[in-house]
Amino acid sequence: MKFSKRMNHLHGSDIRAILKMTEQPGMISFAGGMPAPELFPIEEIKAASVQVLTDHGKQSLQYTTTEGFLPLREQIAQRMLAKFSVSYSPQDILITSGSQQGIELSGKLFLDDEDVVLCESPSFLGAFQAFRVYNPRFIEVPTDDQGMIMEELTRILETTDRVKLIYVIPDFQNPTGRSWSIARRKALMEIAGRYDIVVVEDNPYGELTYEGEMLPSLASFDRKGQVVFLGSFSKVLCPGFRIGWVCASPQLMEKYVVAKQAADTHTSTFCQRIVHTYMERFDLDENIEKMKDVYRNRRDLMLEIIEREFPKEVSFKKPRGGLFIWVELPTTVNAREILKKSLEKGVAFVPGGSFYPNGGHENALRLNFSNMLDEKIREGIPRLAAVIREFL
C-alpha cells in the first residue's frame, strides 16, 4: 500500500498517546488541556437541545451553509467586540469544527512545501501537527514572559525568505501560560504590516482571565486585514460540540469558505443551533465566571503544593489565566524519562519537548490544573515531586 509523501511528515500526537494511558484506573492526569466536566451546564444544554428539536427539528438535522448558522455568527460578532475589542460583521465569521480546523485551514490556504512558519518558542503542538501536512519549515522566535522578542522577530524576517505566516497564542499561551504585553501586541502588528505577512491569532483561553482585565486582541490592532483570529467554545462551554470560529477580512474569508467546503461542507448544524439557543436562553458569562472561580482555586492549590514539594532547582511561573503551569527542570534532566517513572506512580503530564517543533528542550513539562479535583491535585503533585527528586 503506497501512501502520499505528506504522510512522511506526520506522526501521532504525544498528548493523545499520553491520554490513552490516563484511561487506566486510578491514573491522575495533569496531561490534557481539558476543562472540568463537572462544570459543563448539562441541564441547560439539555433544555436547549430539546427546544432546538421541538422548534426547528427538521432544519437542525439538515445540511446548512458552509459559513455557519447566521444567528450564531451574529452572537459571536457581539462577543468579539465585547470581549476581544474588535469589530467583525457576521459575514467575516466562519464556524469551524473546533479552532483546530481553523489552524488546519490556515495551513491549506497559505503554505506550500518549504514555506516558513514563525512561532513562539515553545508553542502549541496541535498547530505543528496541522501545519506539517503542508511540509513547511518552522522557525522558533525567541520568547520571554512578555511574548515574542521583537528584535529577534525582525532579525528573522530580514534574513529569511518564504515566511508565509506567524502563528501566536497571545493570551495564556499553551504550553507556558504566558500572556503578551500590550506593547508587544502593537509591535507585532507594526512589524507584520511592513512585511505583508498573515498573523494567525489562536485565542481559546482569553476569557479565562483570573486576575486583571482581558487584554485587547492582536486583531484589534490590525489595520491591514492581516490577522486571522481563531476562537472556540471548547474551553468556555464544552469541547464535545467542536464549535470554533475563524474571523478574517472579506478577501481572506472567501478563501477560508472554499477551503472548508472541500474539507467537511459545514460544521454540525445541530450543535451550532444548540450553542446559539443556549446563549439565547442562558447566561454563558455567568457559567464562565463559575469556571474561573474553580480554575483559579485549582491553579493556586497546585502552585502552593509545587512551591512546597518541588526541588529548588525547578522553576515555574504563576499564569494569570488559562489552563497550564509550565515547569522547567535543570538542563541535565529529561522530562520524558521522568514521565515513564511518573506513569508508574499513577501521574501523567506532557513533556515540554513536545512543544518545540524542531526538537530539543527536553528539560520542561506542562501541567494542567483545570481537570482534576482538589483531592487529586493534593495527591498527584507530591507523587510527581518525589519522582523529580529521584532524578535530581
Rank of each mutant, 00 (worst) to 15 (best):
L215R: 02
D144K: 06
R185Y: 01
P351C: 02
K312R: 13
M253E: 05
L392K: 12
R79Y: 15
Y167P: 10
T160M: 06
G359T: 04
E254A: 15
L208R: 03
A248M: 11
K341D: 11
L218G: 05
R281L: 13
V350G: 03
S315Q: 10
E158C: 07
Y356R: 02
I197C: 05
K317N: 09
P239H: 10
K260L: 15
E254W: 06
L215N: 01
V141N: 04
I18P: 08
K345C: 11
K290H: 09
G353I: 04
V141S: 08
I139L: 14
P311Q: 07
E307M: 07
S99Y: 02
T332N: 13
N371D: 13
Q251A: 11
N358I: 03
K292L: 02
D144W: 04
T22I: 00
F310E: 04
S354D: 11
V133W: 11
A263G: 01
E390F: 05
E280D: 15
H56M: 13
G32R: 06
E74F: 09
T269V: 06
L81G: 08
S4K: 14
R296K: 15
T54P: 03
I18N: 04
W326A: 05
V86S: 11
I243G: 00
S220G: 08
Q24E: 14
F324N: 14
G193N: 06
M21W: 08
L218T: 05
R137L: 14
F349M: 04
P357Q: 02
L384H: 09
F391C: 09
N287I: 03
E286L: 13
I149V: 14
L301Y: 01
G26W: 10
N334K: 13
V236I: 15
E207L: 11
P71L: 00
D293P: 00
V50Q: 12
L392Y: 14
G322H: 07
M150F: 04
S87G: 06
W180P: 06
F241Q: 01
T332G: 10
G147M: 05
R336Q: 14
S220R: 01
L70V: 02
F241L: 10
M80V: 04
L118R: 06
P122G: 10
L230I: 06
V294L: 15
S99C: 12
E104T: 13
Q100R: 15
E151I: 01
P25T: 00
L10A: 12
L153A: 02
E304T: 03
G321P: 03
V133I: 12
G126K: 05
G68Q: 00
R137N: 13
K83D: 15
L53Y: 10
R389Y: 09
E158Y: 04
T159D: 09
P170I: 10
A31T: 11
R296T: 05
E67A: 12
G231W: 00
K46V: 12
G212N: 05
W326S: 08
F349D: 03
I42P: 00
V257I: 15
T66H: 00
